[in-house]
Design a protein around this nucleic acid. Structure first.
Lengths: 185, 185
DNA sequence: GTCTATAATTTGATAGAC
DNA sequence: GTCTATCAAATTATAGAC
Protein backbone atom coordinates (compact mmCIF):
# COMPACT_ATOMS: atom_id res chain seq x y z
CA UNK A 1 0.00 0.00 0.00
CA UNK A 2 1.75 3.08 -1.29
CA UNK A 3 1.35 6.44 0.34
CA UNK A 4 -0.81 8.73 -1.68
CA UNK A 5 0.35 12.13 -2.78
CA UNK A 6 -1.49 14.12 -0.13
CA UNK A 7 0.09 12.00 2.60
CA UNK A 8 3.53 12.51 1.14
CA UNK A 9 2.89 16.22 0.81
CA UNK A 10 1.76 16.47 4.40
CA UNK A 11 4.79 14.49 5.53
CA UNK A 12 7.12 16.84 3.73
CA UNK A 13 5.27 19.94 4.92
CA UNK A 14 5.20 18.74 8.51
CA UNK A 15 8.89 17.97 8.44
CA UNK A 16 9.71 21.44 7.23
CA UNK A 17 7.19 23.35 9.30
CA UNK A 18 8.20 21.72 12.55
CA UNK A 19 11.75 22.82 11.92
CA UNK A 20 11.43 26.32 10.51
CA UNK A 21 7.90 27.49 11.13
CA UNK A 22 4.99 28.31 8.86
CA UNK A 23 6.88 30.68 6.60
CA UNK A 24 9.75 28.30 6.05
CA UNK A 25 7.58 26.01 3.92
CA UNK A 26 7.21 26.73 0.22
CA UNK A 27 5.21 25.00 -2.48
CA UNK A 28 8.34 24.49 -4.51
CA UNK A 29 10.15 22.80 -1.65
CA UNK A 30 7.24 20.44 -1.20
CA UNK A 31 7.14 19.80 -4.93
CA UNK A 32 10.78 18.79 -5.04
CA UNK A 33 10.40 16.74 -1.84
CA UNK A 34 7.63 14.71 -3.44
CA UNK A 35 8.86 14.73 -7.04
CA UNK A 36 5.95 16.57 -8.50
CA UNK A 37 5.58 20.13 -9.72
CA UNK A 38 4.48 23.03 -7.57
CA UNK A 39 1.34 23.50 -9.66
CA UNK A 40 0.39 19.94 -8.73
CA UNK A 41 0.84 20.77 -5.08
CA UNK A 42 -1.69 23.54 -5.61
CA UNK A 43 -4.09 20.98 -7.02
CA UNK A 44 -4.13 19.22 -3.64
CA UNK A 45 -3.94 22.36 -1.53
CA UNK A 46 -5.03 25.43 -3.50
CA UNK A 47 -3.87 27.92 -0.86
CA UNK A 48 -1.10 27.60 1.65
CA UNK A 49 -3.74 28.11 4.31
CA UNK A 50 -5.47 24.93 3.16
CA UNK A 51 -2.26 23.02 3.57
CA UNK A 52 -1.77 24.50 7.00
CA UNK A 53 -5.24 23.54 8.16
CA UNK A 54 -4.84 19.98 6.85
CA UNK A 55 -1.46 19.70 8.55
CA UNK A 56 -2.78 20.76 11.92
CA UNK A 57 -5.80 18.48 11.63
CA UNK A 58 -3.71 15.47 10.78
CA UNK A 59 -1.20 16.28 13.48
CA UNK A 60 -3.85 16.59 16.18
CA UNK A 61 -5.60 13.42 15.06
CA UNK A 62 -2.38 11.45 15.07
CA UNK A 63 -1.42 12.87 18.43
CA UNK A 64 -4.63 11.85 20.16
CA UNK A 65 -4.63 8.48 18.44
CA UNK A 66 -1.14 7.87 19.77
CA UNK A 67 -2.28 9.04 23.17
CA UNK A 68 -5.14 6.55 23.16
CA UNK A 69 -2.82 3.74 22.23
CA UNK A 70 -0.16 4.71 24.76
CA UNK A 71 -2.68 5.05 27.57
CA UNK A 72 -4.84 2.05 26.73
CA UNK A 73 -3.54 -0.01 29.62
CA UNK A 74 -3.00 2.89 31.99
CA UNK A 75 -5.02 2.67 35.18
CA UNK A 76 -3.59 5.15 37.63
CA UNK A 77 -3.11 8.90 37.13
CA UNK A 78 0.63 8.31 37.19
CA UNK A 79 0.42 5.73 34.41
CA UNK A 80 -1.75 8.02 32.34
CA UNK A 81 0.60 10.95 32.72
CA UNK A 82 3.55 8.80 31.73
CA UNK A 83 1.60 7.78 28.64
CA UNK A 84 1.10 11.46 27.86
CA UNK A 85 4.79 12.04 28.35
CA UNK A 86 5.62 9.09 26.13
CA UNK A 87 3.72 10.53 23.18
CA UNK A 88 5.47 13.89 23.51
CA UNK A 89 8.75 12.11 23.95
CA UNK A 90 8.19 10.11 20.79
CA UNK A 91 7.54 13.29 18.80
CA UNK A 92 10.81 14.73 20.05
CA UNK A 93 13.01 11.64 19.76
CA UNK A 94 11.58 10.00 16.65
CA UNK A 95 10.78 13.07 14.61
CA UNK A 96 13.71 15.03 16.03
CA UNK A 97 11.58 18.16 16.08
CA UNK A 98 9.28 20.18 18.29
CA UNK A 99 5.51 19.89 18.35
CA UNK A 100 3.85 21.39 15.29
CA UNK A 101 1.26 23.17 17.40
CA UNK A 102 3.88 24.35 19.86
CA UNK A 103 5.74 26.11 17.10
CA UNK A 104 2.59 27.47 15.47
CA UNK A 105 1.28 28.52 18.86
CA UNK A 106 4.29 30.77 19.24
CA UNK A 107 3.78 32.14 15.72
CA UNK A 108 0.05 32.58 16.25
CA UNK A 109 -0.04 36.33 15.55
CA UNK A 110 1.67 35.80 12.20
CA UNK A 111 -0.55 32.97 10.99
CA UNK A 112 -3.48 33.09 8.58
CA UNK A 113 -6.65 33.30 10.72
CA UNK A 114 -7.83 29.94 9.40
CA UNK A 115 -5.07 28.17 11.35
CA UNK A 116 -5.71 29.72 14.71
CA UNK A 117 -8.61 27.56 15.83
CA UNK A 118 -6.85 24.28 15.18
CA UNK A 119 -3.89 25.28 17.30
CA UNK A 120 -6.05 26.57 20.14
CA UNK A 121 -8.13 23.40 20.09
CA UNK A 122 -5.04 21.24 20.23
CA UNK A 123 -3.99 22.78 23.52
CA UNK A 124 -7.48 22.83 24.98
CA UNK A 125 -7.75 19.12 24.22
CA UNK A 126 -4.31 18.52 25.71
CA UNK A 127 -5.29 20.23 28.94
CA UNK A 128 -8.61 18.43 29.03
CA UNK A 129 -6.98 15.03 28.53
CA UNK A 130 -4.46 15.65 31.30
CA UNK A 131 -7.17 17.02 33.59
CA UNK A 132 -9.15 13.85 33.14
CA UNK A 133 -6.06 11.80 33.91
CA UNK A 134 -5.51 13.49 37.28
CA UNK A 135 -6.88 12.07 40.53
CA UNK A 136 -10.63 12.36 40.90
CA UNK A 137 -10.48 13.96 44.31
CA UNK A 138 -8.91 17.13 43.01
CA UNK A 139 -11.18 20.09 42.36
CA UNK A 140 -11.85 21.18 38.81
CA UNK A 141 -9.77 24.32 39.31
CA UNK A 142 -6.92 22.34 40.80
CA UNK A 143 -6.99 19.91 37.87
CA UNK A 144 -6.96 22.74 35.39
CA UNK A 145 -4.01 24.33 37.11
CA UNK A 146 -1.96 21.15 37.20
CA UNK A 147 -2.93 20.03 33.72
CA UNK A 148 -1.98 23.40 32.23
CA UNK A 149 1.32 23.25 34.05
CA UNK A 150 2.06 19.77 32.75
CA UNK A 151 1.21 20.65 29.16
CA UNK A 152 3.17 23.91 29.31
CA UNK A 153 6.19 22.16 30.76
CA UNK A 154 6.10 19.43 28.13
CA UNK A 155 5.98 22.04 25.40
CA UNK A 156 8.67 24.20 26.95
CA UNK A 157 10.91 21.22 27.62
CA UNK A 158 10.53 20.12 24.04
CA UNK A 159 11.54 23.52 22.77
CA UNK A 160 14.51 23.74 25.12
CA UNK A 161 15.68 20.24 24.31
CA UNK A 162 15.44 21.15 20.65
CA UNK A 163 17.31 24.41 21.03
CA UNK A 164 20.09 22.92 23.12
CA UNK A 165 20.25 19.70 21.10
CA UNK A 166 19.92 17.79 24.35
CA UNK A 167 16.87 15.56 24.52
CA UNK A 168 17.80 14.45 28.01
CA UNK A 169 16.60 17.82 29.20
CA UNK A 170 13.10 16.82 28.15
CA UNK A 171 13.34 13.57 30.08
CA UNK A 172 14.63 15.24 33.20
CA UNK A 173 12.05 17.99 33.26
CA UNK A 174 8.99 15.91 32.48
CA UNK A 175 9.95 13.11 34.83
CA UNK A 176 10.52 15.55 37.66
CA UNK A 177 7.30 17.37 37.04
CA UNK A 178 5.05 14.36 36.79
CA UNK A 179 6.29 12.88 40.04
CA UNK A 180 6.21 16.29 41.67
CA UNK A 181 2.73 17.26 40.54
CA UNK A 182 1.29 13.98 41.66
CA UNK A 183 3.35 13.66 44.78
CA UNK A 184 1.43 16.18 46.81
CA UNK A 185 -2.19 17.04 47.27
CA UNK B 1 16.99 61.99 23.21
CA UNK B 2 15.73 60.43 20.01
CA UNK B 3 16.09 56.79 19.26
CA UNK B 4 18.70 56.12 16.64
CA UNK B 5 17.93 54.18 13.50
CA UNK B 6 19.44 50.88 14.62
CA UNK B 7 17.33 50.96 17.78
CA UNK B 8 14.19 51.64 15.79
CA UNK B 9 15.09 48.90 13.35
CA UNK B 10 15.66 46.42 16.14
CA UNK B 11 12.38 47.46 17.75
CA UNK B 12 10.49 46.84 14.53
CA UNK B 13 12.29 43.58 13.84
CA UNK B 14 11.73 42.30 17.35
CA UNK B 15 8.07 43.16 17.18
CA UNK B 16 7.63 41.21 13.97
CA UNK B 17 9.89 38.31 14.78
CA UNK B 18 8.28 37.63 18.14
CA UNK B 19 4.93 37.38 16.40
CA UNK B 20 5.67 35.47 13.22
CA UNK B 21 9.13 33.97 13.53
CA UNK B 22 12.40 34.58 11.74
CA UNK B 23 11.03 34.22 8.23
CA UNK B 24 8.15 36.58 8.83
CA UNK B 25 10.51 39.57 8.95
CA UNK B 26 11.51 41.27 5.71
CA UNK B 27 13.81 44.18 5.02
CA UNK B 28 11.02 46.02 3.26
CA UNK B 29 8.70 45.67 6.24
CA UNK B 30 11.37 47.08 8.50
CA UNK B 31 12.02 49.87 6.03
CA UNK B 32 8.40 50.93 6.00
CA UNK B 33 8.15 50.57 9.78
CA UNK B 34 11.03 52.98 10.25
CA UNK B 35 10.39 55.24 7.25
CA UNK B 36 13.59 54.53 5.46
CA UNK B 37 14.36 52.46 2.36
CA UNK B 38 15.26 48.80 2.44
CA UNK B 39 18.71 49.55 1.04
CA UNK B 40 19.29 51.72 4.09
CA UNK B 41 18.32 48.86 6.33
CA UNK B 42 21.05 46.87 4.62
CA UNK B 43 23.48 49.63 5.49
CA UNK B 44 22.89 48.91 9.18
CA UNK B 45 22.55 45.15 8.85
CA UNK B 46 24.10 43.89 5.61
CA UNK B 47 22.66 40.38 5.92
CA UNK B 48 19.50 39.23 7.60
CA UNK B 49 21.73 37.05 9.75
CA UNK B 50 23.45 40.16 11.10
CA UNK B 51 20.10 41.58 12.08
CA UNK B 52 19.15 38.32 13.74
CA UNK B 53 22.34 38.17 15.77
CA UNK B 54 21.95 41.79 16.90
CA UNK B 55 18.35 41.15 17.85
CA UNK B 56 19.16 38.15 20.00
CA UNK B 57 22.06 39.94 21.66
CA UNK B 58 19.97 42.95 22.53
CA UNK B 59 17.11 40.80 23.72
CA UNK B 60 19.30 38.72 26.01
CA UNK B 61 21.03 41.80 27.41
CA UNK B 62 17.75 43.52 28.11
CA UNK B 63 16.35 40.39 29.68
CA UNK B 64 19.18 39.92 32.14
CA UNK B 65 19.27 43.63 32.91
CA UNK B 66 15.58 43.48 33.75
CA UNK B 67 16.23 40.39 35.82
CA UNK B 68 18.91 42.18 37.81
CA UNK B 69 16.61 45.10 38.48
CA UNK B 70 13.65 42.92 39.39
CA UNK B 71 15.69 40.78 41.75
CA UNK B 72 17.79 43.52 43.30
CA UNK B 73 15.94 43.42 46.59
CA UNK B 74 15.17 39.70 46.51
CA UNK B 75 16.66 37.79 49.43
CA UNK B 76 15.00 34.42 49.56
CA UNK B 77 14.79 31.81 46.79
CA UNK B 78 11.08 32.46 46.60
CA UNK B 79 11.58 36.18 46.10
CA UNK B 80 14.18 35.55 43.43
CA UNK B 81 11.97 33.14 41.54
CA UNK B 82 9.10 35.61 41.64
CA UNK B 83 11.46 38.21 40.19
CA UNK B 84 12.27 35.78 37.39
CA UNK B 85 8.59 35.24 36.82
CA UNK B 86 7.96 38.97 36.81
CA UNK B 87 10.39 39.56 33.96
CA UNK B 88 8.80 36.82 31.85
CA UNK B 89 5.40 38.12 32.75
CA UNK B 90 6.35 41.61 31.64
CA UNK B 91 7.48 40.32 28.27
CA UNK B 92 4.12 38.61 27.80
CA UNK B 93 1.85 41.34 29.15
CA UNK B 94 3.65 44.47 28.01
CA UNK B 95 4.96 43.28 24.66
CA UNK B 96 1.94 41.03 24.06
CA UNK B 97 4.21 38.42 22.51
CA UNK B 98 6.22 35.34 23.33
CA UNK B 99 9.92 35.31 24.15
CA UNK B 100 12.13 35.94 21.13
CA UNK B 101 14.44 33.10 22.07
CA UNK B 102 11.54 30.78 22.79
CA UNK B 103 10.24 31.23 19.30
CA UNK B 104 13.67 31.00 17.71
CA UNK B 105 14.49 27.99 19.87
CA UNK B 106 11.58 26.18 18.30
CA UNK B 107 12.72 27.26 14.82
CA UNK B 108 16.34 26.36 15.54
CA UNK B 109 16.74 23.88 12.69
CA UNK B 110 15.58 26.45 10.17
CA UNK B 111 17.78 29.30 11.36
CA UNK B 112 21.07 30.52 9.90
CA UNK B 113 23.86 28.86 11.92
CA UNK B 114 25.04 32.24 13.18
CA UNK B 115 21.91 32.58 15.33
CA UNK B 116 22.12 29.23 17.05
CA UNK B 117 24.67 30.07 19.72
CA UNK B 118 22.85 33.14 20.96
CA UNK B 119 19.64 31.22 21.51
CA UNK B 120 21.40 28.33 23.23
CA UNK B 121 23.29 30.71 25.49
CA UNK B 122 20.10 32.49 26.44
CA UNK B 123 18.63 29.31 27.84
CA UNK B 124 21.83 28.18 29.50
CA UNK B 125 22.01 31.54 31.24
CA UNK B 126 18.34 31.28 32.22
CA UNK B 127 18.89 27.89 33.79
CA UNK B 128 22.04 29.06 35.52
CA UNK B 129 20.32 32.10 36.97
CA UNK B 130 17.43 30.06 38.32
CA UNK B 131 19.83 27.41 39.66
CA UNK B 132 21.67 30.06 41.60
CA UNK B 133 18.39 31.35 42.96
CA UNK B 134 17.40 27.99 44.42
CA UNK B 135 18.15 27.02 48.03
CA UNK B 136 21.82 26.35 48.72
CA UNK B 137 21.23 23.01 50.34
CA UNK B 138 20.05 21.41 47.10
CA UNK B 139 22.57 19.37 45.14
CA UNK B 140 23.83 20.68 41.85
CA UNK B 141 21.89 18.02 39.96
CA UNK B 142 18.73 18.82 41.87
CA UNK B 143 19.13 22.51 41.14
CA UNK B 144 19.65 21.83 37.47
CA UNK B 145 16.54 19.69 37.33
CA UNK B 146 14.35 22.24 39.04
CA UNK B 147 15.79 25.21 37.22
CA UNK B 148 15.28 23.55 33.84
CA UNK B 149 11.72 22.73 34.81
CA UNK B 150 11.02 26.30 35.85
CA UNK B 151 12.48 27.78 32.68
CA UNK B 152 10.70 25.25 30.45
CA UNK B 153 7.39 25.90 32.18
CA UNK B 154 7.75 29.66 31.86
CA UNK B 155 8.46 29.28 28.15
CA UNK B 156 5.67 26.79 27.60
CA UNK B 157 3.19 28.84 29.60
CA UNK B 158 4.08 31.90 27.58
CA UNK B 159 3.47 30.07 24.34
CA UNK B 160 0.17 28.60 25.53
CA UNK B 161 -1.04 31.93 26.90
CA UNK B 162 -0.16 33.45 23.55
CA UNK B 163 -1.88 30.78 21.53
CA UNK B 164 -5.05 30.81 23.62
CA UNK B 165 -5.06 34.58 24.04
CA UNK B 166 -5.35 34.05 27.78
CA UNK B 167 -2.51 35.52 29.77
CA UNK B 168 -4.04 34.28 33.00
CA UNK B 169 -2.86 30.84 32.01
CA UNK B 170 0.70 32.06 32.37
CA UNK B 171 -0.01 33.44 35.83
CA UNK B 172 -1.69 30.27 36.98
CA UNK B 173 0.99 27.93 35.74
CA UNK B 174 4.02 29.87 36.92
CA UNK B 175 2.55 30.68 40.31
CA UNK B 176 1.66 27.05 40.88
CA UNK B 177 5.04 25.81 39.80
CA UNK B 178 7.12 28.20 41.84
CA UNK B 179 5.30 27.43 45.05
CA UNK B 180 5.31 23.75 44.20
CA UNK B 181 8.98 23.50 43.29
CA UNK B 182 10.04 25.28 46.42
CA UNK B 183 7.48 23.72 48.68
CA UNK B 184 9.23 20.41 49.04
CA UNK B 185 12.79 19.31 49.55
C1' DG C 1 23.31 57.46 6.32
C1' DT C 2 20.06 57.60 3.03
C1' DC C 3 18.63 57.52 -1.54
C1' DT C 4 17.48 55.55 -6.56
C1' DA C 5 17.86 51.84 -9.30
C1' DT C 6 18.23 47.34 -10.20
C1' DA C 7 19.52 42.46 -10.18
C1' DA C 8 18.67 37.60 -8.98
C1' DT C 9 15.82 34.52 -6.74
C1' DT C 10 11.87 32.85 -4.46
C1' DT C 11 7.16 32.59 -3.69
C1' DG C 12 2.08 31.95 -3.96
C1' DA C 13 -0.90 31.28 -7.40
C1' DT C 14 -3.42 30.49 -12.11
C1' DA C 15 -4.54 28.91 -17.08
C1' DG C 16 -4.89 25.37 -19.95
C1' DA C 17 -3.05 20.98 -22.30
C1' DC C 18 -2.80 15.98 -21.61
C1' DG D 1 -3.64 14.33 -11.19
C1' DT D 2 0.13 16.02 -13.26
C1' DC D 3 2.34 18.76 -16.52
C1' DT D 4 4.22 23.24 -19.05
C1' DA D 5 4.11 27.88 -18.96
C1' DT D 6 3.57 31.95 -16.91
C1' DC D 7 2.58 35.88 -13.71
C1' DA D 8 2.70 39.26 -10.13
C1' DA D 9 4.57 40.15 -6.01
C1' DA D 10 7.93 39.72 -2.52
C1' DT D 11 12.55 39.07 -0.90
C1' DT D 12 17.58 39.39 -0.14
C1' DA D 13 21.01 41.89 -1.70
C1' DT D 14 24.30 45.21 -4.30
C1' DA D 15 26.11 49.44 -7.00
C1' DG D 16 26.70 53.99 -7.01
C1' DA D 17 24.98 58.97 -6.46
C1' DC D 18 24.23 62.58 -2.90
Amino acid sequence: MEKDTTARLLDAAEYRMRRGGYNSVSFRDLASDTDIKSSSVHYHYPKKEDLGVALIDRYAERFFDALMVASSKAQTPKEKLYAFRKVYRGALYEDKAVCLCGLLGAEMAGLPPALVDGVTSFFEANVKWVSDALPDDLSKAEKYKRASTLVAAHQGAMMMANSSDDNKLFDTVTEFLISNTLGQD
